[in-house]
């Protein structure tokens, strides 16, 4: 029971991370297409300035909880995905630094350098998280000793890449909607029409992904055993349709929540399908990392649960306050700071 509770929390933490960092990574990747001049770029930076850092802590927490609640999974997963993860970390470094460094020197080349970092550093994690999670859903070649029998290129299989494309699309739509919320005028129009343009592509890829999941993974087994669970992928689909509906009505906050629902449900769709495994082995199901063979002791899980029950609601509380507090649109006058 304790293990299952932590399994759910583990899934929820990753889902919330993707929902929150998703829009700033997606927006960073879209910057070269959306921004026509330096003011546009500055507005894009400012639109996520107060949020990206707090969002990224969800990743640290998701990683930390994997370590704390399922140490063996953490060990096997992170060492197996060594190169992919390191690439994500390097990318996240170069996407974070521009926020503080870009405005320090008034020089176009300097700014161009950091803008390039932001774009690469936003696009790569979006893609690689998708590739990584699709591979987790599918299972990776780990042997009886939890040793990975593959390379970085093992992960770049069709289903993994499809997952990558799906994440990039989910995040860019999410990001375009965010910019639509935060801006007015031409930039706003470009952002909302970008969301509209990307949406049909996302819909197609999402459907292909759901179908491919039936062929490439065993995720649907849990759903067939307990059909009630189909509510989760259904919510993802509903969220996706609502996203388009609200974008069409220019109700961008609602669209953002719908898009968030899609990302959260899509992540949980995979996680619930994995249960009780956290990392299936593609060599032999018996080698899989599950909540039974990789969880921490009951005492640790209980203490952690106590900490989570007190602090996570608190975090959600003050982060929500920050989102509400900085909900205003970013305009040219607004850019005075920095």
């Amino acid at each position: 029971m304790l293990e299952t509770t932590w399994f759910i929390l583990w899934g929820v933490l990753w889902a919330v991370y993707f929902m929150l960092d998703g829009f700033d990574l997606g927006l960073g990747a879209l910057m070269p297409i959306l921004a026509k001049n330096n003011t546009d770029r500055k507005i894009i930076y400012s639109s996520v300035g107060p949020f990206w850092d707090g969002n990224e802590v969800w990743l640290i927490t998701a990683g930390g909880v994997t370590f704390a609640a399922f140490p063996t999974t953490y060990a096997v997963l992170f060492s197996s995905l060594y190169s992919a993860l390191m690439l994500i970390l390097f990318a996240l470094i170069i996407r974070a630094i521009p926020f503080e460094f870009r405005e320090q020197i008034d020089n176009p080349t300097w700014r161009k350098l950091w803008d390039t970092c932001l774009v690469i550093g936003s696009f790569l994690p979006a893609l690689l998280f998708g590739v990584a999670f699709a591979n987790i859903f599918k299972g990776i070649p780990i042997d009886a000793n939890g040793i990975y029998q593959g390379t970085l290129f093992t992960l770049l299989n069709p289903y993994g890449l499809l997952g990558g494309v799906l994440f990039v699309l989910l995040f860019t739509v999410h990001g375009a909607i965010w910019l639509s919320i935060k801006t007015e005028g031409e930039l706003h129009d470009r952002a909302s029409s970008m969301a509209k343009k990307l949406w049909p592509v996302l819909l197609v890829v999402a459907v292909v992904f759901l179908v491919a999941t039936g062929f490439s993974t065993k995720l649907y087994n849990n759903y067939l055993q307990m059909p009630l669970l189909f509510v989760i992928p259904l919510l993802a689909v509903v969220g996706l349709l609502m996203t388009r509906l609200f974008v069409g009505k220019a109700a961008f906050w609602k669209a953002w929540f719908a898009s968030s629902l899609t990302i959260v449900s899509a992540t949980l769709f995979g996680v619930v399908g994995l249960y009780p495994a956290l990392l299936p082995s593609s060599l032999n199901p018996a080698y899989s990392m599950t909540i039974y063979n990789s969880a921490s002791s009951p005492l640790t899980l209980k203490i952690m649960l106590g900490v989570a029950l007190v602090f996570v609601p608190l975090v959600i509380g003050y982060q929500t306050w920050v989102y509400v507090f900085f909900r205003h649109k970013v305009t040219e006058e607004e850019l005075a700071y920095h």
Binding site: V57, I60, T61, G64, V65, F67, A68, A69, P71, Y74, S296, T300, I303, M304, V307
Partner: peptide, 8 residues
């Protein structure tokens, strides 16, 4: 691991 998670 739990100490790191609590830190975060």
């Amino acid at each position: 691991g739990s100490l790191l998670a609590i830190e975060a």
